[in-house]
Each structure stands twice: as structure tokens, then as C-alpha cells.
Amino acid sequence: MSENYEPNIVAFLCNWCSYAGADLAGTSRVHYPANIQVIRVMCSGRVNPLYVMNALQQGADGVLISGCHPGDCHYMEGNFYARRRMGMLKDLMEFVGVDPKRFHMSWVSASEGHKWKEVVEKTVEEAREAGPFEGFRRRQIDW
């Protein structure tokens, strides 16, 4: 691992809570690591497990999924489905040898700008520990 390695994190944020929470962190001038690439989705339940796979294949070193707190989902129950799905995906990925430090899920509400900062810091720190993801990343082919 090189000295100045910076992990690449792809974050899927739900439109109603976590995205607004991250926005609040921005407007309240909270500083957090800049390793996060945010993708806004309408609900954490909309995140297909294949998004996670694709992110890792295409060069992400870690993935973060964030949604509303259980019971606060804009669509009533989307985050419950996401929780069940992602819990299993995490087990499966760990089983095939992907470091569980690369995959995180969190509940961040629209008023939790500071929690968002903590979540990002934790995610980046753990991804940094895990190092660059070489597992099943798509290799560039030299033709």
C-alpha cells in the first residue's frame, strides 16, 4: 500500500433522510473526509445488491449505504427490506473473502449532520485499514 493511499468510497444515500443529513453537514460547515462519492437514490430499499458488486468491480474500495432510521422511512418500510437484504449480502461477501470493513450501512436522519460526519469518518478509516480492493475488481486489459 502506498504512503498516500486514499480509499474510494461509494455511498448510496436515501433522498429523504441521509442525503438531507449529508446536506445539513455541508451547510453547517462540518468537515469530513472527501473520499466519499455520493449517489442519491430515492430509498435505501432501492439499492440493489448488484450496485454494491458493481461498485467494487469498478474500483471502489468501500461501499456505504445509508437510509432513514427504521420506522422513519418515507415509503414506510423500504429501509426494513434494505436491512434484511444488506445483512445477508454482507454475510455472503464475507464468506467469499471480501473484507467486511469495506461494506457499511447506517441510519442517518435529515437532522443528523454530525452523525453523518462520524459515519463517514468510521467508513473511511476502516476502508483505509482494509487497503486497496484488489479482490474481484475489473482488471484493465492492455490490448
Binding site: P70, G71, Y81, R83, M86, G87, K90, M105, S106, W107
Partner: peptide, 15 residues
């Protein structure tokens, strides 16, 4: 299974 949930599903992996 994947089209249902329980409110008390395990969430120890969530930050």
C-alpha cells in the same frame, strides 16, 4: 423471505 421483514431483524452490522 426477501419480500418481507420483521421490525426486529438483526442490525448489529449497522453503524
Amino acid at each position: 423471505f426477501q419480500a418481507s421483514f420483521k421490525p426486529d431483524d438483526p442490525e448489529d452490522f449497522i453503524l
